[in-house]
Design a protein around this nucleic acid. Structure first.
Length: 303
DNA sequence: GGTAGACCTGGACGC
DNA sequence: GCGTCCAGGTCTACC
């Protein structure tokens, strides 16, 4: 990221401690997906963001003395500043309090490092819509495929940054809803996932699906999971992944990587199934997804 | 409720 | 360079 013109009116956000920006950015691969941006040391979160007004801005968040400083290129109105602050606060989980989990994690050598490193927050997108699309695009493909598909969506359908039209924001539901299945399938390279993404975008754009309300829905995790599973293209793995993003850790996103890790951790590399993964973390109850996610695995997977 | 096959793409591999 | 095989979750049809 070069030639960044970030200035004017920085916004300071406080976080529930302990907090580490680099720990959040390293929490999973989302930071590698467009339109997010960082450096090798994960010292900042950069992003091209489309605000509610339709204005597209370049934002940058840094950690300064345990707080988060948010800057945008160009002056923002007060409402735009509030919106940007809310988005960054949600993305970084600044109000998440993991105190009770850390108390349990201290007793487990494989998790004891978490509190000291301020681990446990999982990087989110500003909207659950974006996270759902990205999660669908992680299924049944290699990570390189996910990067490619998300990149195609952003560059092909997202609003361009005025001062650098080669960079784009993540497309809104309306922008994706206006395209068609064949374009998503062939040109964006989504393959069979195209109808899933298109249907999701159309339902959100037409307000028949209120995804964002699930962020604060005061309902049991099992009910929340049911609603996520009702989305075409979202199965057990994707639902568990989205629940983790929503701060619900009752389910484990069991994918092929999870099976491999558990196999090497407890079964001498012998093949295991979903049951063995769930059994391994059952004792963590409402925190099992987070314990799984942050586990210090003995088997180090390449990449 | 469980299972098999199809879906789509990129990468690895053999020729 | 080309063809084949495989990995990766979810959906649908079927039992």
């Amino acid at each position: 990221m070069t030639g960044r013109e970030v200035n004017l009116e920085p916004l300071t956000l406080s976080a529930v401690l302990p907090f580490s920006l680099s720990s959040v950015l390293r929490s999973h691969g989302w930071i590698q997906l467009a339109p997010c941006d960082t450096d090798e040391t994960h010292s900042f979160l950069g992003r091209v963001e489309r605000l509610g007004s339709g204005r597209v801005v370049e934002m940058l968040a840094r950690e300064v003395d345990g707080s988060v400083l948010v800057e945008a290129a160009g002056a923002l109105s007060e409402s735009e500043r509030v919106e940007l602050g809310c988005k960054v606060g949600w993305m970084l989980g600044l109000d998440q309090d993991l105190t009770s989990f850390y108390a349990l994690a201290r007793q487990e050598p494989k998790l004891a490092q978490m509190e000291g490193k301020a681990q446990g927050r999982i990087l989110r997108s500003p909207t659950l819509f974006e996270d759902t699309v990205k999660t669908i695009l992680t299924t049944n493909t290699a990570w390189s495929g996910t990067i490619r598909m998300v990149g195609n969506l952003v560059s092909g359908f997202g609003s361009p940054l005025p001062r650098d039209p080669s960079r784009h924001a993540f497309p809104t539901p309306g922008q994706l809803a206006r395209t068609d299945e064949e374009t998503l399938r062939a040109h964006a390279g989504l393959g069979y996932r195209a109808p899933y993404v298109l249907q999701l975008a159309q339902e959100v754009a037409e307000l028949t699906l209120d995804l964002e309300s699930l962020k604060a829905a005061d309902i049991p995790t099992a009910e929340l999971r049911k609603r996520l599973l009702a989305i075409k293209g979202v199965g057990d793995y994707a639902a568990a992944n989205l629940l983790m993003i929503l701060g619900r850790y009752d389910y484990i996103p069991v994918d092929s990587w999870a099976l491999k890790m558990v196999s090497h951790e407890w079964y001498d590399g012998e093949p295991v199934g979903r049951g063995e993964v769930e059994q391994a973390f059952e004792r963590w109850g409402e925190w099992q997804g987070l314990a799984f996610w942050c586990w210090d695995w003995s088997h180090k997977s390449p990449g």
